[in-house]
């Protein structure tokens, strides 16, 4: 059994910052970076293991497959029912409409605005416990 933290974001700096923050709070293993929804979707479809937990920090605005398309794709995927997969939307958008729309997905555990603070990283890791 392993814990996987999937960071899905097209901004490399976000990946860099996230990793450094996570490292500060002692979380270094199992961080996976994806530049768009499609990459993350491919990974989950191919590598999903029953015993493992998956926390997905999902950006909304991305090329190829954006966060919305990813959420739609997950909804139609049988994996979406799996309790081991948690999605937290992490976006630079502060649009209330976006938040309401994201929270309407059952699979979306929370909606946070970028940049995440150290406390927020600690909070999101709760999902992997």
């Amino acid at each position: 059994m392993s814990n996987n933290l999937l960071i899905v974001d097209d901004d490399p700096i976000i990946h860099l910052i996230s990793k450094r923050f996570l490292s500060k709070i002692g979380f270094e293993e199992g961080i996976l970076s994806f530049m768009n929804g499609q990459e993350a979707m491919d990974f989950i479809s191919e590598s999903y293991q029953n015993e493992s937990k998956y926390l997905i920090l999902l950006d909304l605005n991305m090329p190829i497959m954006n966060g919305w398309e990813f959420l739609e794709s997950m909804r139609s995927n049988s994996l979406a029912q799996n309790e081991n997969i948690t999605i937290i939307v992490v976006t630079s958008s502060i649009d209330k409409e976006d938040e309401d729309r994201a929270r309407a997905y059952e699979i979306v555990h929370d909606y946070l605005s970028k940049p995440l603070t150290l406390e927020q990283f600690e909070y999101v890791l709760e999902a992997l416990k």
């Binding site: 700096i13 976000i14 910052i17 630079s92 502060i94 940049p115 995440l116």
Partner: peptide, 11 residues
């Protein structure tokens, strides 16, 4: 606007 701004704040 929030995209570069949140990046700056994060850094």
């Amino acid at each position: 606007i929030r995209a570069p701004l949140s990046r700056i704040m994060g850094i």
